[in-house]
């Protein structure tokens, strides 16, 4: 077990290194940080050259990379070109908001998906199964930039027009230390996220439960006289959890990255918006910093997921 863990950790470091190289190259070639000055005629050739020099964009690529890596190892992700703030500070300011929003959304999504998935599986082909299937796929079928905007227009704009109690668009200046305000502002983005994401999850829950219910040991359990419900909760759910763990594990990085689009539509001051805004500006210290944090999370969580497997499905051995 311990040697396994050690080996995984060693591999993880290797993965991280690959990721940093990959991300560095991708971000460096994803646009010009000086492009925002382009259409401004007052910026002379010399000004531009001086700025390029100052930002270190003239160094050979590997020098730029090694400089960045050297500092990153010491916990310094550099300064944003545009915000002129340490990247670590910028991320620290946004991370809590994203975590709160995304954790809430994830918990609601997973519970909703489990509920829908179980009903769907147990009552396969019934009216409820069909209704749930249709509903979850409709949620899944609308791009979130569209459904989020729709939710906002209905529950904020139209409700106000109709004189009904309405929800905030998220774009006002609101007090983050007031829990009531926080929840009020969170309702729409969480709904948008849950509406879209529970479709995929509930399908996987349904699939896995159906699969497990067909296995021999369940049949044995039934033969032993266990009731349907006991079988479901004692055996089926436990095994159906395996794919769900995989999926939720896969989603964790996106919890950190935040839902780029949802955060944007609802003006949520989180990591997703930070990322989107600064990748548009090709401010690569910020973009790289966020990617590094996300990668760290993925790598660690992958190991954790693999360990959870062994508990959930004893047939899998770590070797």
């Amino acid at each position: 077990m311990w040697t396994y863990l050690l080996r995984r950790l060693f591999q993880a470091l290797f993965t991280l290194l690959i990721i940093t190289v990959l991300c560095f190259l991708l971000t460096r070639f994803s646009g010009d940080p000086l492009a925002q000055y382009a259409a401004n005629p007052r910026m002379s050739a010399e000004d531009r050259a001086a700025l390029v020099e100052r930002l270190g964009l003239n160094d050979p690529l590997y020098v730029q990379y090694l400089k960045w890596l050297g500092l990153a190892i010491q916990g310094d992700l550099g300064n944003s070109f545009f915000a002129r703030q340490p990247v670590t500070e910028m991320i620290a300011q946004r991370l809590p908001n994203t975590l709160i929003l995304m954790m809430t959304a994830e918990i609601i999504t997973v519970s909703f998906a489990l509920f829908l998935g179980i009903i769907s599986a147990v009552k396969q082909y019934s009216f409820w199964d069909n209704a749930i299937t249709t509903f979850s796929f409709v949620g899944f079928s609308i791009p979130i930039f569209f459904s989020a905007l729709g939710l906002m227009l209905i529950f904020a704009v139209q409700f106000k027009e109709w004189g009904l109690p309405y929800l905030p668009t998220g774009a006002s200046v609101w007090d983050k230390s007031d829990p009531v305000e926080y929840i009020r502002n969170m309702i729409l983005p969480v709904t948008a996220l849950a509406f879209v994401n529970s479709a995929g999850y509930s399908r996987f829950v349904r699939t896995s439960i159906l699969e497990v219910l067909g296995l021999d040991y369940i049949r044995t359990a039934r033969a032993k006289g266990l009731t349907g419900r006991a079988v479901l909760f004692k055996h089926a759910l436990r095994n159906a959890a395996l794919p769900l763990v995989t999926i939720v594990g896969l989603d964790i990085p996106f919890l950190l990255g935040g839902a780029i689009v949802t955060e944007s539509v609802f003006s949520w001051p989180g990591m997703g918006r930070l990322f989107w805004e600064y990748s548009q500006r090709s401010d690569y210290p910020v973009v790289l910093g966020i990617l590094l944090i996300i990668s760290l999370a993925v790598v660690i969580l992958t190991i954790v997921t693999d360990i959870i497997y062994t508990f959930v499905d004893p047939r899998i051995r770590l070797s």
């Binding site: 591999q11 993965t15 990959l22 990255g257 990322f275 973009v287 990617l291």
Partner: peptide, 26 residues
């Protein structure tokens, strides 16, 4: 397994929207 999964992890750790943007430009 190790190599393929490291590669998968590396790709996975980059949000798809970002990959879409970068690759599109790339």
């Amino acid at each position: 397994d190790s190599i393929l999964m490291r590669f998968t992890e590396a790709m996975l750790s980059i949000p798809q929207l970002f990959l879409l943007i970068v690759l599109g430009k790339f």
